[in-house]
Simulated assay, not measured.
Amino acid sequence: EEEPQPGERPDTSPPEIPPGTDPLPDPSPEEFPGDSPEESPRPSDPAPTPAPLEIPEAGPDELTGSVTSEPTERRPGFLSRLLRRETKTVTRRVLDDDMLEQIEELLIASDMGVDTALRVTANMAEGRFGSRVSTKEIKQLLAAEIARVMDEVARPMPLYPDTPQVVLVVGVNGSGKTTTIGKLAAQFKAAGKSVVIAAGDTFRAAAVEQLQVWGERAGVPVLTAPEGSDPASLAYDALTKARADGADLLMIDTAGRLQNRKDLMEELAKIVRVLRKVDPTAPHNTLLVLDATTGQNALNQVEVFRQIADVSGLVMTKLDGTAKGGVLVALADKFGLPIHAIGVGEQIDDLAPFDPEDFAAALTGLDRTA
């Protein structure tokens, strides 16, 4: 090639390609991944939004009381560990307004309700406000206060000398009435009582069949009526037969009904009126079965069923499937109705007497074996 002469500009034009020769192919994305259009962000695409950082609030140092501005590692909050086991390192914090507010939020999240949560925390802090407490001590204080509230309502279902004792079981759809009747019948039968069950849900054949299965498990006869029959008429016939047979207990199942259905609630009131034509004191017990997973809605159910059927006691089911059993504390605090038993499973013996201390320990995460 000729050297460029002084003053001449070098030729920068691309070299000529002979005819019939393909130009060099462009590099594929596999050869240069960083330059691939799929991996290179386009100016028109919005940049991905990063997840917000959860920055723990600065709090007093455990020993000096100074404010820690740059924690070296993220630790769970003191009160967020209330439902966990106590760690080996004992941490003590001042029981102040901020801590009480966080405890209230935890209790409200467990469906205890605002009013009851405020009362429980206020009683727990009485005489201890401003003192330093550990996680375990907080759990113990909470459990003691909850057990104190629940002690007033932990009562077994009373048995009366006059027979047959009529037990009317009510509740909304799916609350567990049928299984509760089967479990109670098995317990009374094991205690030497003569029990009869009346399948008062005459509108659903499946409900009658289910109750018959439970009756067979418990070894208890089940009285039925044709589908679509008047449940009040069945209750009347069942009480008459139980009295003639000398039964100790007559347990009457009722159709599940929503508390906002006026027609169904009136039907329940009719059953009570018909029973009192045979025995003016019947029903001797009206058990309202509540589903623990319904949370604060249980308060509305108790309010309505008390007006219609004069509820005398509660049975709480499905406590094994929810972390929101705090509604029991709200029920005890507001209504004071006896809690006779709690359902913790599907087996025939999975109906336990209500123990306030065990319940309080389970709700707060307190390890009673430690």
Rank of each mutant, 00 (worst) to 15 (best):
E2R: 12
P6N: 07
G7F: 09
R9A: 13
R9C: 11
P10C: 09
S13T: 15
I17S: 06
L24I: 03
P25E: 10
D26F: 09
D26Y: 09
P29K: 12
P29W: 10
P33G: 14
G34L: 15
G34T: 15
P41V: 15
D45N: 15
A47M: 14
T49K: 15
P56M: 13
P56V: 13
E57A: 15
D61M: 09
D61C: 14
T64C: 07
G65K: 15
S69Q: 11
L79D: 02
R84A: 10
R85M: 06
R85T: 04
E86A: 14
T87M: 08
D96Q: 06
D98Q: 12
D98E: 05
D98M: 07
L100N: 00
L106T: 02
I108G: 01
A109G: 10
S110H: 11
G113K: 03
V114I: 12
V114D: 01
T116I: 01
L118P: 00
L118W: 04
L118N: 05
A125R: 00
G127P: 03
F129R: 14
G130Q: 03
S134W: 00
L141E: 08
L141Y: 04
I146F: 12
R148C: 00
V149G: 01
V149R: 09
D151M: 14
V153M: 05
P156E: 14
Y160D: 14
P161N: 10
T163N: 04
P164I: 04
Q165S: 10
V166K: 05
V166G: 02
N173T: 06
N173F: 08
S175W: 04
K177H: 06
T179C: 12
T180W: 11
G182I: 08
G182Y: 08
Q187V: 13
F188E: 14
K189D: 12
G192Y: 11
K193Y: 15
V195A: 11
V196A: 11
A198R: 05
A198T: 06
T202H: 00
V208Q: 11
Q210T: 04
A218R: 02
A218L: 07
G219C: 01
V220M: 04
A225Y: 00
S229G: 00
S233F: 01
A238R: 02
A238N: 06
L239R: 00
R243C: 00
D245M: 10
G246K: 03
L250N: 05
D253T: 02
D253L: 01
R257Q: 02
R257T: 01
Q259C: 04
Q259F: 09
R261S: 13
L264I: 11
E266R: 12
K270G: 04
V272W: 09
V274A: 07
P280E: 01
P283L: 13
P283Q: 10
P283I: 12
H284R: 14
V289L: 04
D291W: 03
D291K: 03
D291S: 09
N300T: 13
Q301F: 05
Q301W: 13
Q301K: 12
Q301C: 05
E303P: 02
V311W: 06
G313L: 15
L314W: 01
K318E: 07
A323Q: 06
G336W: 08
L337D: 07
H340S: 10
A341T: 08
G343E: 08
V344P: 02
E346D: 12
L351H: 05
L351Y: 11
P353V: 07
D355T: 15
E357L: 13
F359I: 14
